[in-house]
Write a protein that binds this DNA or RNA. Sequence first.
DNA 1: TTGTAAGCGTTATCAG
DNA 2: CTGATAACGCTTACAA
Lengths: 337, 337
Amino acid sequence: MATIKDVARLAGVSVATVSRVYNDSHLVREDTRERVRQVAQQLGYSPHGAARSLITSRTHTIGVLLPDLYGEFFSEVIRGIDLRSQQEGFHVLVSSARNDGRSLESALRSMRGRVDGLIVMSPDMDAGAGQRGLPARFPVVLLNSPPSDSGYDSLGVANFDGAYAMIRHLAGLGHRRIAIIRGAEQNFDAAERLRGYRAAVAELGLEADAALELPGDFSEAAGHAAALRLLALPRRPSAVFASNDGMAIGALSAVREAGLRVPEDLAVTGFDDIPMARYLDPALTSVHVDITALGASATDWLLATLQGQEIPGARREMLPTTLIVRRSCGAGAPGPA
Amino acid sequence: MATIKDVARLAGVSVATVSRVYNDSHLVREDTRERVRQVAQQLGYSPHGAARSLITSRTHTIGVLLPDLYGEFFSEVIRGIDLRSQQEGFHVLVSSARNDGRSLESALRSMRGRVDGLIVMSPDMDAGAGQRGLPARFPVVLLNSPPSDSGYDSLGVANFDGAYAMIRHLAGLGHRRIAIIRGAEQNFDAAERLRGYRAAVAELGLEADAALELPGDFSEAAGHAAALRLLALPRRPSAVFASNDGMAIGALSAVREAGLRVPEDLAVTGFDDIPMARYLDPALTSVHVDITALGASATDWLLATLQGQEIPGARREMLPTTLIVRRSCGAGAPGPA
DNA sequence: TTGTAAGCGTTATCAG
DNA sequence: CTGATAACGCTTACAA
């Protein structure tokens, strides 16, 4: 692989000049620049990233730490991050890591000298421990994380509001007995959605009943199992709010198997509004979340910090959601919206 | 940030010794090693990746180039890559890039000195151009790519076989007039699935009719539109094979809207077997593909090449698929399998 | 077993 | 405008 020296020699200039050409300094005569470019092209030269970042102490790379590289949510977030990073000429180094202190710390150590900043997604309630592994005053943006005193910027989804809006909508349709299928126990998003559900139930005077809060883990299988339990209840609810669309899909299939109809016998709604939600039978009422935008915003924040435009001030922001009404709640238009 | 010098000074040894500790050379006395580790810990030191790779000329990072960071397929592939990489102590640098020569080349240039090898997913039929941008004798594994004379290892899915098996299965159920919803025009996987369909139709003596080959692009919307066109045909087919599950889902919803039943009026099948396929109504018959394994295998190949265990010899391998029979084709068990 | 010192490929700081 | 040359943080002969 050709180095800057090879180019310099062949172009009859010093390495400094070649370097200047690549950092488009104005201090290079046009014909010199042209000659260098030509030689570089011919040699297939391009600057060595590691060498560059060694001296500049900037890698032009952002690290992304995720709890697990699984599912549509993750993929959309990464997409948003990649899109924005690429626009700004940054690379993306991804890594999954359980969120306990140790593995987070080791992931971080191995990233030292490789990234300029970090986007850390730590949806676990007890992730505070993990965050302590982070080096002090290292640029970090937290994603979907519980509030902490870490002093880091934090970005998430307005889970509480979204869930609240959904329950209010169902109440508006006349439902008084509404169940929820919860997300993973330790998951912060899930906890917020549950909180939104409970707040709505309390404030709107709906039936509060512990039997209506079923455990789940965001998987289709969990939604299926939970719905079966609901249908077996002595006093069956008239509606169920699944904490994500995957579980809602599982619930839909369970209701069908039981020979009952959605929404007539049981209204079913979800959260996330994944692309196929509108193609389900019946089309799924859900809370829309713009996940790509979440990733893009996190990237914006991080890059702004890196470029010194922003003082990282433990900002905390929740991306708003939108209620998407379709047939599964009993109020939507018939065809795919 | 502490450097190797700081550690050396505080531990009263030379930088060489510290270095040796971190490369677990046997040439360090146990108590010296211990002292160094302690000081390093105390200083929060960890080796600077860029500096290290500058001298060793190994980055312990693999680059992943994808056409677009979109959808479940991508996320599963990355997952497989990340899992295996992490086991071997490698990092993953991802980047999306259109597959034309220029953007692939620029993505590559900017990765020079940052990655030891590359996994390139270039499903476009005319991606040959792009591959030319790759530096000679750079370790590369191609994913889901059309055959080429690039000399690179290439890994993909047995699309032809999967599609063939599906059509044969439908024929076995008595269908003689079977339609296909095609994937994106330029997509190699889509082309192979189409080829499998055509081969089966020809060899099994099914009705061959250009009107039964509908265009699509892997989206739910495309499947929906294609199914509507099929239903409007003067001579309607009795079954339709969608080139992926997303389009199958769109097709299911279109059939329902038309007031018809699956599989009685039209059998519908897909390809990929995404997790929720079994929860659809009716549960979707599909061709199962282990995408995570695909990513993991690609990583294995690449790492083997990097570690000099394998001579990259333009191997070409197609991961086998499995036919998953459920209700939507008219032959499966009633409940979720 | 440890230390010294020469790079790795860049950029930055000076002189010219 | 251009060229020497000293870093950047680390690994690795070669010496001791």
